[in-house]
Structure formats: structure tokens, C-alpha cells
Design a protein around this nucleic acid. Structure first.
Lengths: 333, 333
DNA sequence: CTGAAAGCGCTAACAG
DNA sequence: CTGTTAGCGCTTTCAG
């Protein structure tokens, strides 16, 4: 900028204004400045700019697992929406680790991101991290995983509803001994479990405690958990899995044991990841409007960032729906 | 910082030095500063810091598709390695669009990232974008997709080798009419095609031009391409697909047509994405050491960023290997 | 060991 | 319409 100003015999300010086409600059001057700028291949320094404007055009995206299609899809939706508005995304993969998440969140604050979108790995209760967010006045929106006791913007589905829907679907397909491979102790994990129990209760079904086993989040854990479940007597005839990757692993275990999906054991997941339809047995699942979650979160955040006064927290819930495929298609009833 | 200095009756400089535990500060002063800093919950402002030190601890990661497991896995490897060194990753999803990539690259430069890792969507030849990188002196390393005519750091595999390996595997399994669903016109796409042709030639096999059809990169395109291929006479008995998602889509199309994989048509992909084993038919594929690509790229970049003098460009090639699974397991022969 | 001066590259606010 | 002044929050350099 200094060079341009010198070359053109104008002041630094004139250049600055011309470059951002500020109103009060003559067309002629603006032209000259712009011309010289491209000649010199001038690149504005965002750092300096950020320092004075207090705006970085950086959004922090904190998620537990990039490899999980669900989050990758959400990330894509966010990137598209926010990218169009000139923001860039700094991503942080917490690998489902609370301490790591806290560290990264603080780094992002120190970096002065304009906003934050978080699918938190915090186990229920531990919400102190978000205190610092409030203190730092960084607008943020939670996605997918609600945090008990945090009054914050949220976009996602009601977890119990997902569990209820999935379990009810299995019951309608004629399953009577329904097991659940549960997820981590975050809101989604415990909410889906609650929904599962609720659906069973409503239909007067009981499940022994061994019918709820612990997966975590990946296909590998689904496989292991299912093998465990296969040893339980009486053997379940339906399994609701925490998410689609877990369900995919579970299907593998069932088939390996020489049993059929869905005839011996019906399986349903949650999340409707894009490759569910291509699995060993096309997977029935619960759709959560993944892409729209990302987009809605982006929009909500953008409103928070634009508005001068702090807006009241809003919660946007999408309605989950059953996507029936072969893995629960039972002829019998 | 100003507050701390005032409270303690020392100068701003003393605080600054104490905070970064610079050598020449008495232990006592340091203690006092640190104590007061935590009391006030002081958070350093990285922007101001970056402006003067010319270091942002930000790495740009430019990839064509976050949803593709391959890139998600690479991203994870990079994040883990570089995250441990204090860097954060700003990600940019180009969606295989050259113009978009160019725009994002320039944004990242303006943002003064310390380094760049790029799986470029540039079609062969168009390498002018990377001129600006050189001009801006941002260290960068290319991954997965080499760029003709760009003398740059690279980490990945030799594309022709992948194509050759896959095709040869099909031949060894007894296939004689081998088709190829090719990828986009980037290095990986054309390299794999070259390898396919090379393997056919070596074994004295011919393939009519209709045996090479165009997919792009996703499972949907694989499905469409395969349907097209099923109409060709004589029908192929083996198909090498650009990547695993494409192969997954292709399998779906074959099964839908009432044919068997691998008996009627054997199928092999490339990339060894983590769910390959869970597909309709467990997918044979070519492993490219995905995670190690990410890690190696991160290490290479970190060396470039650390070294004061510009290092000569290095190229790291991993050796691709066949991962045989059911989709090519033919009893015959 | 501590501090004063100067400045990173840019912009807000106001004066000419 | 153009320019001056005064910083943003921090670090580097060099003198006490």
C-alpha cells in the first residue's frame, strides 16, 4: 500500500479507501489505485486488517471425527454456506477427547475466530468449557450434540426421538428381542438409548440388561459389540445401533457368524450416511437431514455474528425419519 | 498485558518477556507476572503476535472432497501431526472446481498461512496458480495428485503403478475383457488410465474404446458409468474403477442387473477406504498408505517451514499394494 | 535483569 | 474528495 501511495503521489489513506471502494473517492483515483495495485500484484494483509477491525473471517469447526461421514457432510454444508460469505473454516478434530477439545477451543478463541460451531465431545455435565466461550463473547452454535445445562444455540434432532423411531421400526417389522449397541456418553448416545427404552416400554417389551452393549462410534467397535451380543441367550432378533458405521460393523459380524440380516437379526443404524445403501446389506437407518444441519448451523451463526446485540439462544430441531432398506425388511410378522 | 504491567508496576516489555519465558527475566518477576496473568485470565492475542512475528501457525489444506474418505483420512493424519506442533488447519473444499481452488489458494495466501498442503483439482497443464505460491514464498506440498510441470514437494503414489497393479490383478484372476471407469482429468485419473492400458498391452490384451467410460469421483457416478458399461457388447468380465466410491457404485449397478460380483464381473477399486470391507461385496482395492501420506506430507511441510533456506523439492512415493477381497475372487483358473 | 523507542500493515475518526 | 493523527496488541532492538 505504501508503494502504491508513493507511486501515485497520494496518501496511504486514499489507497486504503480506494481498495475497499469506500464511498468518497473519485472514480479516477480509484481506477489509478486499482490499476497500480494489480500491476504490483498487491495482496492485502488480512492479519493487519484483522488486528484493527477485530474481524478475522475465520470460523472454528470443532468435531469429534472427520472420518465419520456424518460430520464430513455437516462440515461440507457449513463450508459451502459460510465460504460463500467470505469466511474460512479452521477445523479441529477432537477424536472424542474432552481435554483435547478444551485445548482446541481455547486456541481458537486466542486466534480470535469470529464464531464457532461445535459438536462437543464433553460428557454430560462438564460444561465449564463453554463458560470461557461465553466469557470471550464468541458466538457459537452447538450441532448434533446438545449439552445439558448450557443455554446455547443448537441445531440437530431430538435424540430420544431417533432411538424411539428406530426401535419402533424394528418392532413393527416383527422383532421382539431387541438389543442396542450404544454410543459414547454424550447427549446423542444417552438420548438414543433413552428413546430405545421408551419404545420398548410403550410396546410392553422387556430387554435383559445384556441387550445393551457398548460400542463407541466406529465400525470396528460395532463389529466387536455385535460379536458380544451374539453370545447372549436368547439371541436378539433385532439390533438398533448408535450410528451407521457401528451398524455396518455389526452386519459384518452377523454375516460372519453364518446368520442372515434381516431374517435372523434385523439391524438399523442412524445418520443415513451416504454409503449406507452400498453396504453388505443395504442399511435401514434414521435420516437426520445431515446437510441441512450444517447449513442451518451456518446460517444461525452468521446471524449471531452479524447482529450487534447478543441474540437469545435458539434451538432448531429437524424431524428424523425412518429410511427402510433391506437390513430390516422382514416378510414375517 | 497492559493491565498486568500496570498492576505489577513493571513495564509492558517485562510482561511480554515473562510470558514467553524469555531468558533474561528474574524468576521472581516471572512468577508474579504468570500469577497475575492467570488471575486476569489473560489470553494472548495471536493476531497481534502474528503481525509482528510473521508466523500464524495456520496451515492451509486444500482438497477436492472432504466427503471422500480418502481425503478425510489424509486430513486426519495431517491434523494429528501438525496439531501436535501447535499448528491449526484451515480447510478448503474445492469440490473439484479449478476456479474455486484458485480463489481459495489466494485467500489462504492473503491470510498468511505458514504452509499449504494441496491435492489440486487443476487439470493437467494449468499450473499458473502455483506460480503465485512460489511468488508468495509460501512453502507447500502437493499430495496425491502430482502436477505436470510443477517442481514441487510431493507425497503420494505413482498413479500408473496403481492402474497397472489393479489391472494385472484382474488379469491374474482370469479376466480377459477388462474395462475401466476412469476418473477426472487430473494426474491420478490419467495416470491410472495409463497404467491400465500398459498392463493390458503387456499381457497382449485389447480393449475396445467403449471399455473406458467416464466416471467422476463419487459412488453415484460409478453407478451410472457401470450401467453404461453393462450395455456394451461383449460385456466386460472385469472392471478397474478409478477409486473405491466409484467401485461401490459399480457393484450396486452390477448386482441390480442380476449379475454376480465377482463371477460375472470382477471389480477392483483404489484407495482402500476404511469401509471397503463392509460393502455389498467386500471390495478388492489398491492400498496407498493413506494415513502415512498425510503424516509424511505434514512432516515434509514442517521441515520446509523450519528451514531458513528454501529446500530443494522432494518427492515421496509410497508403494501401492493389492488388497484382494471378494470382489475379484474368482474360483476359475 | 529491565525498559524506552519504534514499528508490523492496516483503518477509524475527523479535519481540511 | 483527500489527508492527518492515532492507534489495534504485540515484539524487536538496543540502551540503561
Amino acid at each position: 500500500m505504501k508503494d502504491i501511495a508513493k507511486d501515485l503521489g497520494v496518501s496511504l489513506m486514499t489507497v486504503s479507501k480506494a481498495l475497499r471502494n469506500h464511498s468518497d473517492i473519485s472514480d479516477e483515483t480509484r481506477e489509478r489505485v486499482l490499476k497500480r495495485a494489480t500491476e504490483l500484484n498487491y495482496q492485502p494483509n488480512w492479519i493487519a486488517q484483522s488486528l484493527v477491525t477485530r474481524k478475522t473471517f475465520l470460523i472454528g469447526l470443532v468435531i469429534p471425527d472427520l472420518m465419520h461421514s456424518f460430520f464430513a457432510e455437516v462440515a461440507k454444508g457449513i463450508g459451502r454456506k459460510l465460504g460463500g460469505m467470505g469466511y474460512q473454516i479452521v477445523i479441529s478434530n477432537t477424536e472424542e477427547d474432552e481435554a483435547r477439545e478444551e485445548r482446541h477451543l481455547n486456541l481458537l478463541i486466542a486466534r480470535k475466530v469470529d464464531g464457532l460451531i461445535v459438536a462437543s465431545a464433553q460428557r454430560s455435565g462438564r460444561a465449564d468449557v463453554f463458560q470461557s466461550l461465553e466469557a470471550a463473547k464468541v458466538p457459537y452454535v452447538l450441532i448434533d450434540r446438545m449439552l445439558a445445562g448450557v443455554e446455547a444455540n443448537f441445531v440437530g434432532v431430538k435424540d430420544a426421538e431417533v432411538g424411539d423411531l428406530a426401535t419402533t421400526h424394528l418392532i413393527e417389522q416383527g422383532c421382539r428381542r431387541i438389543a442396542h449397541i450404544r454410543g459414547p456418553a454424550v447427549a446423542t448416545g444417552s438420548g438414543r438409548l433413552r428413546g430405545y427404552r421408551q419404545a420398548l416400554a410403550r410396546h410392553g417389551l422387556k430387554a435383559p440388561t445384556e441387550y445393551v452393549v457398548c460400542g463407541e462410534s466406529g465400525d470396528h467397535t460395532g463389529y466387536e459389540a455385535m460379536r458380544e451380543l451374539l453370545l447372549v441367550e436368547p439371541r436378539p432378533d433385532g439390533v438398533f445401533c448408535y450410528n451407521d458405521p457401528v451398524a455396518a460393523g455389526a452386519i459384518k459380524a452377523v454375516l460372519e457368524a453364518g446368520l442372515s440380516v434381516p431374517d435372523d437379526i434385523a439391524i438399523i443404524g442412524a445418520g443415513n450416511v451416504h454409503y449406507s445403501d452400498l453396504l453388505r446389506v443395504p442399511l435401514s437407518t434414521i435420516d437426520q437431514s445431515t446437510t441441512r444441519i450444517g447449513e442451518a448451523a451456518a446460517e444461525l451463526l452468521s446471524e449471531c455474528m452479524t447482529s450487534k446485540s447478543a441474540l437469545p439462544a435458539r434451538r432448531i430441531f429437524f424431524t428424523p425419519t425412518v429410511v427402510p432398506r433391506d437390513s430390516t425388511r422382514r416378510l414375517a410378522r
